[in-house]
Design a protein around this nucleic acid. Structure first.
Length: 482
RNA sequence: GCCCCCAUCGUCUAGAGGCCUAGGACACCACCCUUUCAAGGUGGCGGCACGGGUUCGAAUCCCGUUGGGGGUGCCA
């Protein structure tokens, strides 16, 4: 029975867009919007056994779930998974042979190559077209490409015409009888009542072949939509080997799903108005395949991070603290197969104080663009002896006023009222007497107590750190400074 | 080789013949704010690949050139 709701097929490609869980797949953005229109069928087809493993596909499903796509009814295709349509593949091949749309050929790849070389024309020359061969071991089934032209109507690119004479008689069934991707692909589409095929533009040149197959099999072809591909700095399509393209990698680094989705949508498309950071509901309502850009897009991590920073700042403190949890509790999201290990909280678990983090969370919220940056920003609260950055230390203590002023500060701190305001005015007063600006004067104090020259606002931090610990660290720094 | 796709600031884009002296975002620079660093505010830098048409008028339409990408497998 044919569904009245459009069924889309998300066509992953080995050379496409984005890399999830070990497979380079594509089009997250379009898929997200398309969910609005109807049933979404995610199908993964890969007859390469080495890549077609359960853990591999689970990685894809997990990554999709992260950005809000339900991949639970994903259809997997390939030798590792028993194909639900294996019988259909064979039946379709037989039908094509019987109807004369396909024929068998006994030439080996080497022989095909030799003939091509001899004739000077690349590709298969149709040698067995009329030899009347029947099925047999080592014989491949080839599609008999008809004369004429094939016109593909593409949702994003419009009308594209192909001269059939430029398309050779391609293989449908291998010598061992197994179906080739393109054959399995259209038979599965037909079996699943697929109405829309949305995929990366690199598939466009092969589309006429598929369309001819649909027609030869007696079906009306689906709606095609070829969206642009993502490229690296060199304008080459994203490659797993050289490019950082795993979705989980960004999750592990602390990109939030909403920012990821929002950023992805801006690649090849833009919401109306002057802002690119928009609610997902607006993206869904405004998006249309026909408004998708035709050219490839460069994945700009800097912009992704900027988007993420903005999403982080939009959160309430409570939300932010909750979002930070995996990183501050020491168990950030793992990313199997991803090379770079994300930074983790490196303080002893028992020293971590959640209440302390909640107090300073608003201060770190405006200072990070990735959640993985949080631990390094607050570790001095939870480390018994935070490492002192040597160059920061030397710089801070280089001035002749540095040591004496820190001694004075230490003395007054011992009895001062322990609040941000009094801490600040105390240090400010000392600065005034020395004619040193607060910005400079606080440097030795900051390095002494936090180990670094930059960090959250100092007096707020000291207030949270407490008098005893602050004094202890100043004493240690003074001893070090000699 | 042949076939297909693409072409607006560094990057992502807005732009469907006059609203364009080409708008926004990221990045970059400057200033303001400021207890470091951020965040925030203000301003700045910067682009229609080139050449021909069509038109009163072209970033927008047509042709060509150049450049980039992809396909052309018993890979997917």
């Amino acid at each position: 029975m044919v569904s009245s709701t459009p069924r889309y097929r998300f066509a992953p490609s080995p050379t496409g867009y984005f890399h999830v869980g070990g497979a380079r797949t594509a089009l997250y953005n379009w898929i997200l919007a398309l969910q609005n229109d109807g049933i979404f069928v995610l199908r993964i087809e890969d007859t390469d056994e080495s890549r077609n493993q359960p853990q591999w596909t689970q990685g894809i499903i997990d990554a999709l779930a992260w950005i809000g796509i339900d991949g639970s009814d994903t259809h997997f295709e390939g030798p590792y998974f028993q194909s639900a349509y294996a019988a259909a593949h064979a039946a379709a091949a037989h039908k094509l042979f019987e109807s004369g749309h396909a024929y068998y050929c006994d030439l080996t790849p080497e022989q095909v190559q030799e003939r091509a070389k001899a004739s000077g024309k690349p590709g298969y020359d149709g040698h067995s077209r009329d030899r009347g061969l029947t099925a047999g071991p080592g014989r491949v089934l080839r599609f008999r490409v008809p004369a004429g032209t094939t016109v593909v109507h593409d949702e994003v690119r419009g009308r594209v015409e192909f001269d059939n004479s430029t398309i050779e008689d391609f293989v449908l069934l291998r010598g061992n009888g197994s179906p080739v991707f393109i054959h399995a692909n259209v038979v599965d589409d037909i079996s699943m009542n697929i109405s829309h095929v949305v995929r990366a533009e690199e598939h466009l040149p092969n589309t006429p072949k598929q369309q001819m197959l649909w027609e030869a099999l007696g079906h009306k072809p689906p709606v095609w939509a070829h969206v642009p591909v993502l490229v690296n700095e060199q304008r080459k399509k994203l490659s797993k080997r050289r490019d950082k393209v795993a979705l989980e990698q960004y999750r592990a680094e602390g990109v939030v799903a909403e920012a990821m989705v929002n950023y992805l949508m801006t690649l090849g498309w833009a919401p109306s108005g002057d802002t690119e950071i928009v609610e997902f509901s607006r993206i869904v309502s405004e998006f249309a395949l026909s408004s998708v850009n035709h050219s490839s897009a460069f994945f700009d991590v800097k912009k992704l991070n900027a988007f993420n920073g903005e999403y982080l700042r939009k959160m309430s403190t409570t939300e932010f603290v909750a979002a930070c949890d995996p990183w501050i509790s020491g168990t950030p999201p793992t990313a199997p197969g991803v090379d770079t290990a994300p930074p983790v909280a490196h303080w002893p678990k028992e020293r971590f104080d959640r209440a302390v983090f909640e107090r300073v969370a608003p201060l770190v919220q405006t200072r990070v663009s990735l959640l993985s940056e949080v631990p390094a920003m607050i570790d001095f609260f939870f480390l018994a002896d935070p490492a002192i950055d040597a160059s920061a230390f030397d710089k801070a203590f280089a001035a002749d006023w540095a040591r004496p002023s820190l001694r004075t500060i230490r003395e007054r701190l011992a009895t001062a009222d322990w609040s941000v305001d009094s801490l600040k005015s105390l240090v400010e007063a000392i600065g005034a007497s020395l004619d040193v600006k607060l910005g400079k004067l606080q440097a030795p104090l900051r390095v002494a107590t936090t180990g670094r020259s930059v960090g959250p606002p100092l007096f707020e931090s000291l207030e949270v750190l407490g008098r005893e610990e602050t004094l202890r660290r100043i004493d240690a720094a003074l001893r070090r400074a000699g």
